Simulated scan of single mutants.
Amino acid sequence: MRRRRQPQEDLHNKERWLISYADFITLLFAFFVVMYSVSSVNEGKYKVLSETLTGVFNAPQRSFQPIEVGDQSQRGTAAATDDVISPDIAETVDPALSEQDRSAELRTIADQLTLDFDELISQGVVSLESNKRWLELNLPDSLLFSSGSAEPHYDGFEVVKKIAGVLRNRDNAVKVEGFTDNRPIRTSAYPSNWELSAARAAAVVRMLAMEGVEPERLAAVGYGQHQPVARNDTEEGRRRNRRVVLLISRDASIRGTMR
């Protein structure tokens, strides 16, 4: 008796499990590939990432509340400047130095500032002028602050840190002057350019003190738009007028050297 042939459809139904099995094996292979990739950490990249995060979280705080003027009141003021100055600052230079010695000391400061800002001076961004009694370091406002603000941006701290490194452990008086262009500003914080320029000068003074320059050597003055060095009817002239100037005196008495 001849055996009955199974229908072709029944054979297909019995082999469908192979499709599911193949899909499962493929997924399992993909899973192990992913697990292997995750477990194979690039040690070099991991070390760089770890060191970067460590540096960010361990870095000192480099901001402070801007000086408020006008209608806004200052709340939660920072601790007194004396509290942030390092107690390890060396004693200042003997105030009884001769005039010749003080002139030589002023030239030394000029040489060090020229070296530290050599690139910016060669580019015409920063200028340094001197006479027998003063050094005048001229900084554009954009090097320290954002437009219309007296809160230093991050790069501004590095600039002031360089300056403070030269001025520390000396006794030369330092006057910081703030200037603006003639474009009016009227905000709750800065009713006029006078307040803005004075706040910027005071901000630089505070940063110098934070970096270890003795506060009794420092003074801040704001001139607003009233002492321009260029015409205010061009963008280039306005850019030159927006500046912060550090006047570093040969002498030690800040009030005796105010000009």
Rank of each mutant, 00 (worst) to 15 (best):
E211R: 02
A104G: 04
W194F: 13
K175T: 15
R231Q: 08
S40A: 13
T180I: 01
D155F: 08
V48Y: 09
L115I: 12
N131Y: 06
P184A: 13
R259W: 03
A150V: 00
L28H: 14
A110C: 01
F24S: 06
T114M: 06
S20R: 07
E91K: 00
Q61G: 04
E177K: 03
R217W: 12
V126D: 04
Q123C: 04
V245F: 02
V244Q: 01
L49I: 09
D171R: 11
D251P: 11
E15W: 11
T234I: 11
L97C: 13
F57S: 15
F24N: 04
D251M: 10
Q72I: 06
E68H: 11
P215G: 08
H153V: 05
N193M: 02
D155L: 06
T234Y: 03
A79P: 01
A30E: 14
Q227W: 13
I248R: 03
V33Q: 07
G124Y: 14
S86E: 06
L196G: 01
V69I: 13
T187P: 07
Q6H: 05
R168V: 03
I248V: 06
R133A: 12
S37V: 13
R4M: 00
L120H: 01
L120A: 14
L137G: 06
R3F: 04
I109Y: 04
G224C: 11
N241H: 04
W17L: 13
V41I: 15
G55V: 05
P228K: 01
I67V: 13
F64R: 04
M207R: 04
Q100G: 15
T77Y: 10
R238M: 05
A189C: 11
L247Q: 12
G165M: 07
A230H: 10
T187V: 12
V33T: 07
N182L: 02
V84T: 12
S192H: 04
S63A: 05
L115C: 09
Y46I: 09
A78G: 07
S149M: 12
Q72Y: 00
T234M: 08
Q65S: 09
V244N: 04
E51C: 03
G124C: 10
A104R: 10
E235Y: 00
L246T: 03
L246A: 05
I248W: 02
G222E: 07
T81G: 08
D141Q: 14
I67W: 05
V34E: 15
N232C: 11
L137H: 06
F157V: 09
S122P: 03
E15I: 09
T180F: 02
I254F: 08
Q225C: 09
D82N: 11
Q100P: 09
P66A: 08
D83M: 11
E68F: 09
M1I: 01
T187E: 07
L115T: 15
L115S: 14
G76F: 12
D101P: 01
W17R: 10
D10R: 01
K175R: 01
W134F: 15
D94M: 07
L135H: 01
V34W: 12
W17G: 02
R75M: 11
F24C: 10
S130L: 10
Q227R: 13
E15A: 14
A80S: 13
S142L: 10
A104Y: 06
I163D: 02
A203D: 12
